[in-house]
Simulated assay, not measured.
Amino acid sequence: FQKMSENVNHISSKEDCKDRVIPDIYTFNTMLDACAAKQRWNDLEYVYKQMLHHGYHFNAKRHLRMILDTCRAGKGELLETTWKHFAQADRTPPPLLIKEMFRMKLEQDDHAAALSCIASHCSSESLVFSHKAWLNFFKENAHRFRKGTLVSLIHEGSILISRNDSQNPIFQNLITACREFLRTHITDAGIDQTEALSRLQSETALKF
């Protein structure tokens, strides 16, 4: 596969193609499937980047699960690469990729980037962004987020909602689900965060 990839650099005319074999999309997908099956994430990342470099595009049916699996394995760079690929092609990422990017940014305490990726790409018609879906999201990822992170998310999300003339249903679903999650999953150790949440909400109400 490495030799096939390098062959592309030596092709400048149709005549060169006669003596050299270059990878096509089937070759890339076969390699990606093999890497994913063996959980060889570094190799998968290399093959995937080579696929994009050779002019082939992300295919949700073939590549979505791979990208999500690499993220769950702690390899977020591939998601970042895919995100840039969509931006350069002026395409909208699939809802599950948007939500995964949101999760990754929120886990990094980058609330602005997390909210931005939703504001820029989401469709309010997608069930992926319903109140129930967001609540399940917080439950499934409870071990990834600090309570303080979620408190800050509610604060910043509430400010965005207040600044918009029209209410964004996605933000509304997100914030109400996050509040419900904090209220129903709070522990004694989280009393300080609850008080901080109430204080931030009061400050936001006074400002707007």
Rank of each mutant, 00 (worst) to 15 (best):
Q50M: 14
M51R: 15
M51S: 13
L52C: 09
H54V: 09
Y56V: 01
H57E: 07
F58Q: 04
F58T: 10
F58Y: 15
F58A: 11
A60T: 04
A60S: 13
K61M: 14
K61D: 13
R62P: 09
R62S: 15
H63V: 11
L64P: 06
L64A: 13
M66E: 03
M66R: 14
I67E: 00
I67M: 02
I67L: 07
L68P: 03
D69N: 13
D69G: 01
T70P: 10
T70Y: 08
T70F: 13
T70N: 07
C71L: 14
R72E: 15
R72P: 05
R72H: 15
R72N: 15
A73N: 02
A73Y: 04
G74E: 02
G76W: 00
G76S: 04
E77H: 14
L78R: 02
L79E: 01
L79G: 06
E80P: 03
T81C: 06
T82D: 02
W83Q: 07
K84H: 14
K84F: 14
H85M: 12
H85G: 06
F86V: 03
A87G: 05
Q88E: 09
Q88V: 05
Q88T: 03
A89C: 10
D90K: 15
D90N: 15
R91T: 05
R91Y: 13
R91P: 10
T92C: 12
P93A: 10
P93N: 03
P93S: 07
P95E: 00
P95G: 07
L96N: 09
L97D: 05
I98L: 12
K99T: 02
K99M: 15
M101H: 11
M101E: 07
F102K: 06
F102A: 05
R103Y: 10
R103H: 12
M104L: 15
M104R: 15
L106T: 03
L106W: 06
L106R: 12
E107Y: 08
E107T: 11
D109Y: 13
D109P: 10
H111N: 14
A112D: 08
A112M: 06
A112S: 10
A113D: 07
A114R: 09
A114L: 12
A114N: 13
A114V: 07
S116Q: 14
C117Q: 08
C117A: 06
C117K: 04
I118G: 00
A119L: 14
A119P: 01
A119T: 03
C122W: 07
C122D: 00
S123W: 00
S123Y: 02
S124E: 09
E125T: 12
S126N: 05
S126E: 05
S126R: 10
L127I: 06
L127C: 02
L127P: 04
V128P: 00
V128Q: 08
V128S: 06
F129E: 01
F129G: 02
F129P: 03
S130M: 11
H131E: 09
K132N: 04
W134K: 05
W134L: 08
L135V: 00
N136V: 00
F137S: 04
K139P: 03
E140H: 06
E140Y: 01
A142Y: 00
H143E: 07
H143T: 11
H143A: 14
R144W: 03
R144Q: 08
F145I: 06
R146K: 14
R146P: 00
G148M: 05
